[in-house]
């Protein structure tokens, strides 16, 4: 039996296994080529040339070199204070977000507000604002309110209100309807059903999300400082501008320790909640 006959015999047993349909292969290769073209175009658009990269990495090497040994520059107290301020911005921003998100979350929950128009509108508005990054909020608020922690708090609050409201709404909607029904069946008024049928189920979820957002906002609070909204980001930005990278390294290390401590504390609390 010739090779070709063998192949044809196998193909007859399992159509498509030997002679893969040409369209499948073409689709795969076209996809791959399109991907490669887009990737190359993007690469060229960004001017990621060898000389740029080589020069940049050389300079980055120098910067990393000046980072050792890290030093506080004799300003440890000031830096600790800045870290505390960053935490304060994160806390107040999260509180603002929670206060703003609670009523919106209630409006967005189908089982709390039966009117479909209301939660449709609330959800669409939240979808639009959910996409605005915190840094964009911070930039405009620093211009509006002036330098300092307050625009940072507002930026974090505004950025998180629609995100938290969506999560709160979902937590409320996920509440087991049977528990709510059983209270309704006792003759409880709606507020009683909300208090005992929904709240015990939704509150731990919401609190856990608040803590998660607090963790994330400690990062956001450092970022908004870069555009002038106080805290550790502001200190970092200053030192990067004057190329004091040994102090930058120190601040980054300090910050990593603070993030780790906060994350561990918050995660411990979150495991206790559930």
């Amino acid at each position: 039996m010739s090779d070709l006959a063998l192949l044809q015999q196998a193909e007859a047993l399992a159509p498509g296994a030997i002679f893969t349909p040409i369209t499948n292969r073409v689709k795969f290769w076209l996809g791959l080529i399109a991907f490669a073209i887009v990737f190359t175009a993007a690469w060229i658009d960004l001017e990621l040339t060898y000389s740029v990269l080589a020069g940049g990495f050389g300079k980055l090497g120098q910067i990393l070199g000046t980072m050792v040994p890290p030093t506080s520059g004799g300003q440890l107290e000031r830096l600790l204070w800045a870290i505390a301020q960053t935490l304060a911005i994160a806390v107040l921003g999260t509180v603002l977000a929670v206060v703003g998100a609670l009523p919106l979350g209630l409006l967005a929950a189908r089982n709390i507000v039966p009117n479909p128009m209301i939660h449709f509108i609330v959800r669409r508005i939240m979808d639009i604002f959910r996409g605005i990054p915190v840094l964009v909020w911070a930039l405009i608020l620093v211009a509006a309110v002036g330098l300092g922690p307050i625009p940072g708090i507002l930026a974090i609050g505004f950025a998180d209100i629609p995100r938290l409201a969506k999560l709160f709404g979902e937590a409320l909607e996920n509440a087991d309807e049977r528990q709510r029904d059983s209270l309704r069946a006792t003759g409880s008024p709606d507020i009683g059903v909300l208090r005992f049928g929904t709240l015990p189920q939704a509150l731990p979820v919401c609190l856990s999300q608040c803590l998660y957002y607090l963790e994330q906002n400690f990062r956001s609070a450092a970022i908004v400082g870069v555009v002038g909204a106080g805290g550790i980001g502001f200190e970092l930005d200053e030192r990067i501008r004057i190329f004091a990278f040994d102090e930058v390294a120190f601040i980054v290390l300090l910050y990593i320790v603070a993030v780790t401590v906060l994350d561990l504390g918050s995660q411990w609390l979150r495991t206790r909640l559930t």
Binding site: Q85, L87, A88, I89, V91, L92, G148, P149, I150, G230
Partner: peptide, 8 residues
């Protein structure tokens, strides 16, 4: 404390 630190 947060109010105090953030000068809010």
């Amino acid at each position: 404390m947060s109010m105090e630190l953030s000068e809010a």
